[in-house]
C-alpha cells in the first residue's frame, strides 16, 4: 500500500493570482492529434494545408477528385479539432460552395462518422477517406441538399450537367456557385 504524503508536509504556497496555465506536458488530445497528423496517409487526390505548423488543431483539407461527377473540381474543407478530441469528433465544414446532395450551401456535411457514428478509434485519416468517398458516391438517400438529391435520383445525366455547371461557375436553379475547377 502506498504512503501518501507520508510527511504530511506543508505544501508550498502557490501563486494565487491567475497566470495563463502553461502545462509543461502536452495534453492527451494534443498527443493524439500529433499522432493522427504524422500518420496521415492521404490518397493522391487529397492534400492538407496547415496555415500555422505549430497549430495541429486547425487545418484545411483539399480534395481534387480524379473520377466521378466531381472530376476536375477543387474542394476545400476546414477542420477544427477541439480539446475533447478524440472523445468528440473534429468539426468539419466545406468552404467551397458545391452542388452536392450531402453538402448544403452553408458547408454542412452529412457524413455519419462526423456525428452519430464517430468513435474515438477513428482518426483524421478515416474522415479524409469518408469525405473523398462522398465525391465518388454522392448518396441521395441522406440528403442535405434536397434538390440536388432529387435530381441525382431521377436523372443522373441532368445531375452530372448541373455539377459541371456549378463547378465551372454558374447558376443551378437560382443558386449561384463560384468556379472551383482546378
Amino acid at each position: 500500500m502506498i504512503k501518501l504524503f507520508s510527511l504530511k508536509q506543508q505544501k508550498k504556497d502557490g501563486e494565487a493570482t491567475p497566470k495563463v496555465g502553461n502545462q509543461k506536458k502536452a495534453s492527451a488530445a494534443q498527443l493524439r492529434i500529433t499522432k493522427d497528423i504524422n500518420e496521415l496517409n492521404l490518397p493522391k487526390t487529397c492534400n492538407t494545408e496547415f496555415p500555422d505548423p505549430d497549430d495541429l488543431l486547425s487545418f484545411k483539407l483539399i480534395i481534387c477528385p480524379d473520377e466521378g461527377f466531381y472530376r476536375g473540381g477543387r474542394f476545400v474543407f476546414s477542420f477544427k479539432v477541439g480539446p475533447n478530441y478524440p472523445h468528440e469528433p473534429p468539426k468539419v465544414k466545406c468552404e467551397t460552395p458545391v452542388y452536392h446532395p450531402n453538402i448544403d450551401l452553408d458547408g454542412n456535411v452529412c457524413l455519419n462518422i462526423l456525428r452519430e457514428d464517430w468513435k474515438p478509434v477513428l482518426t483524421i485519416n478515416s474522415i479524409v477517406y469518408g469525405l473523398q468517398y462522398l465525391f465518388l458516391e454522392p448518396n441521395p438517400e441522406d440528403p442535405l441538399n434536397k434538390e440536388a438529391a432529387e435530381v441525382l435520383q431521377n436523372n443522373r445525366r441532368v445531375f452530372e450537367m448541373n455539377v459541371l455547371k456549378a463547378m465551372r461557375g454558374g447558376c443551378v436553379g437560382s443558386t449561384f456557385f463560384e468556379r472551383c475547377l482546378k
Binding site: V20, G21, N22, Q23, K24, K25, A26, Q30, T34, I37, N38, E39, L40, N47, T48, E49, F50, P53, D54, D55, L56
Partner: peptide, 19 residues
C-alpha cells in the same frame, strides 16, 4: 513537437508536406 511556455510547437513533421 514540444511545448514551450504552454504553447504547442511543431519542430519537424516529415509526413505532411505543408508542415
Amino acid at each position: 513537437t514540444t511545448s514551450i511556455n504552454g504553447k504547442n510547437r511543431t519542430l519537424y513533421l516529415p509526413t505532411v508536406s505543408s508542415i
